[in-house]
């Protein structure tokens, strides 16, 4: 099992990577949806952490794509936006856990 981080902010992405590796997990980072799609598709037991606001293809687009996989992996959406902005973006998508930034480390370690 691995954690895939799709996040355009280098600081957030790198710190998440370090944090997860510190927990003994295997983790990978992608600066945008496009590079995530270019990599091998995730395994069913993987977890994907995706920022909702990405340049190019949106985080919601990534979530929809993942949910259409035969065995969808777990998806955690992260966002630093307001609740209303988040709801607007994930309208029509169900079964997604959402974490608002700043992320609390307890919350992440509980979830992952």
């Amino acid at each position: 099992m691995a954690v895939h981080i799709v996040e355009d902010d280098p600081g957030v992405s790198d710190s998440l990577l370090m944090f997860l590796q510190g927990m003994g997990l295997v983790a990978y980072t992608y600066p945008d949806a496009e590079s995530f799609f270019e990599a091998d598709p995730p395994q069913p037991d993987d977890t994907i952490i995706v920022d909702l606001l990405l340049p190019g293809i949106s985080g919601a687009g990534v979530i929809r794509w993942l949910q259409e996989l035969k065995e969808p992996p777990r998806v955690i959406a992260i966002s630093a936006q307001s609740q209303s902005a988040i709801e607007k973006q994930i309208r029509g998508i169900s079964g997604v856990e959402i974490l608002r930034k700043p992320l609390s480390s307890e919350l992440i370690s509980q979830i992952v």
């Binding site: 600081g11 710190s15 370090m18 630093a80 936006q81 700043p102 992440i108």
Partner: peptide, 25 residues
């Protein structure tokens, strides 16, 4: 304001995770 709050949340998230990783190690 809203966009700036978003912009501030990014480094705050990173700081929290880095320190947590350090403390865990």
């Amino acid at each position: 304001g809203a966009a700036l709050a978003h912009e501030l949340n990014q480094p705050l998230t990173a700081i929290m995770l880095y320190l947590q990783a350090a403390s865990r190690s």
